[in-house]
């Protein structure tokens, strides 16, 4: 944390994005009856440095568990996880987590909550400049002094994102970060995340159950799910999302991909499968 002579105040020396490798990761929980229940089984996944990978899967399939294992909040019962060829430690300092709920400390101002994410040993002045820059980045500069209960859910979630970024992570782990937000706010937050990523291109692992969100944000989408009757979820499918971000939300190519992903999630797409032409154009009003 030596202040670079030429760097302007508050310019973060961004940590280089790091690749993540999961090898044969499994996680079994002890069931109430004393037995074990496999949640994850043989998960192999490589995430390149700076890549955004979305983990998609039905509810309860172990997406969050997988993310928590990468963050060091949980430990695998089989296999291993490495960041930059170095095994993940408990509460790994190279990761920052954005939780599904904001999880801000209610007695602290937004500013001081974001400061919580700063790495240990950050100087007071550097820390303050860094927090101010991040609040600016997520559009909360005006609300720095507010308490979490004084701002909206979307703003609290932005503060939570800023706190995660304050850690200057090599890997950013987002656990359904926009799941609890209303539809419009969610779209805005997705755009914000893309802005943030282009400003600080860290590796992002994003858990979501929203196919559109995955298509909009990710370079690759990993479909997690159980294979047949075997217990435990694994990687069912990996989809490379075409094109560059930001992507057109109305693109026909993405619509086709969405249909396939929904199919992979076991959702009936109600279209071509029932003989209805997928290419019908919507007539303009008045009909």
């Amino acid at each position: 944390m030596t202040p670079a002579p030429a760097a302007p105040a508050g310019a973060a020396t961004a940590a280089p994005a790091a690749p993540v490798a999961l090898r044969g990761v499994g996680r079994a929980f002890t069931a109430p009856d004393g037995g074990t229940r496999d949640v994850l089984r043989d998960v192999d996944l490589d995430v390149d440095a700076g890549e955004i990978v979305a983990i998609l899967g039905p509810s309860g399939c172990g997406k969050s568990t997988l993310l928590r294992i990468v963050a060091g909040l949980d430990h695998p019962t089989a296999g291993e996880v490495a960041i930059d060829d170095d095994a993940v430690r408990p509460y790994d300092v190279r990761c920052a987590v954005g939780f599904q709920e904001p999880r801000l400390l209610p007695w602290r101002s937004i500013e001081r909550n974001v400061a919580l994410g700063l790495p240990r040993g950050t100087g007071r002045r550097d820390g303050r400049a860094q927090v101010a820059r991040l609040l600016e980045l997520v559009g909360l500069a005006e609300f720095a002094g507010h308490r979490p209960h004084e701002v909206s859910g979307g703003m609290a979630q932005r503060a939570s994102l800023a706190r995660a970024l304050a850690r200057n992570p090599e890997v950013l782990l987002l656990d359904e970060p926009f799941g609890a937000l209303d539809a419009l706010t969610r779209l805005k937050m997705q755009d914000l995340l893309l802005d943030v990523h282009s400003a600080e291109p860290t590796t992002v692992l994003l858990v979501t159950h929203d196919v559109d969100e995955a298509l909009q944000l990710a370079d690759r989408i990993v479909l997690l799910g159980a294979d047949g009757d075997a217990p435990g979820a694994g990687v069912r499918q990996t989809v490379v999302v075409p094109g560059h971000r930001p992507r057109d939300r109305g693109s026909a190519e993405l619509a086709e991909l969405r249909g396939r992903l929904l199919d992979g999630l076991g959702i009936d797409r109600h279209g071509a499968a029932r003989g209805i032409q997928a290419t019908t154009t919507i007539p303009h009003y008045p009909y």
Binding site: Y91, V93, A96, F99, R103, L105, G117, R167
Partner: peptide, 20 residues
């Protein structure tokens, strides 16, 4: 959940106690 968030951001022991 607040405790876990605190730990995830590197707080433990006395600092976790004082902060959360």
């Amino acid at each position: 959940r607040l405790l876990e968030a605190g730990r995830a951001f590197g707080l433990r022991g006395a600092t976790l106690f004082a902060t959360v």
